[in-house]
Design a protein around this nucleic acid. Structure first.
Lengths: 125, 125
DNA sequence: TCACCACATGAACGATAGCTCATGTATAGC
DNA sequence: GCTATACATGAGCTATCGTTCATGTGGTGA
């Protein structure tokens, strides 16, 4: 008798069933959280969604987003360490792009779900 | 083998094509980032993945995860404000559960993608 | 009504994040 | 070689986060 009922959270919105985030141990939770941190800040989210359209150099990114070069570089370092983007020299520039399709999908789905969630938000309490 | 090419993001795993995180304006980026912040911390991630299995009261959650009741309550307040969980009285307890299926899917897909990403991570630089 | 339980909430504190500023490193052109 | 460009990096500052501690609020049963 935990909480009343087992209550799987499905009221039928999506219908599509992914296997599970079932039961994370603390270390997995920490590592997943660390990667999600990368998506959890406006600046990095802008960097990633910009890179999702096409590859960009650091300066191009900075101007496109409206951040300073140094700030962008710092964030790119982080994103690289997390395996979300890769950089490749081209002359004196370094062209960054998303690491692979998983990153693009993670981005898309996150934005997709969150838009739906925000639509369902009432000013209840 | 996957880091080199351009990448139209529709080809891969799911087959289901979400529209795109295409070009976020700053305010959308901020709001999406705010929601993702909720998944970006070990404690909240543990709370959410626990609630994904079934509904729990605050005290149950606290013991299950190994946090203090106050800390859990603080985080639940945040998660509630973001529309990720809902609470409902049952006697003197308040039973929390995920708000809807979008939350569950967001959780699942995030964990799923990130596990794949972490598998592809080498100790490069 | 009174004690008790479950949860919420405000204040305070240490830790961390993201930015700017200044400087270092690598490539290209002269 | 020298200079300019493009990017990386370290130090430092401020703001914010997540936690704990103490206290408030609401429901329950004697």
């Amino acid at each position: 008798m935990h909480a009343g009922e087992p209550m799987p959270p499905g009221d039928g919105v999506g219908g599509r069933d992914v296997i599970a985030a079932a039961h994370l141990d603390e270390s997995t939770a920490a590592s997943v959280a660390a990667t999600l941190q990368a998506l959890a800040t406006p600046s990095r989210l802008l960097i990633l969604t910009t890179l999702r359209q096409s590859a960009y150099s650091v300066t191009e990114l900075a101007t496109a987003i409206g951040m300073e070069q140094s700030a962008v570089s710092h964030q790119l370092r982080l994103l690289r360490a997390l395996g979300l983007v890769t950089g490749q020299r081209d002359g004196r520039r370094i062209v960054y792009r998303l690491y692979d399709n998983h990153v693009a999908q993670l981005l898309d789905q996150a934005v997709h779900h969150i838009e739906h969630l925000r639509l369902g938000l009432r000013d209840s309490d």
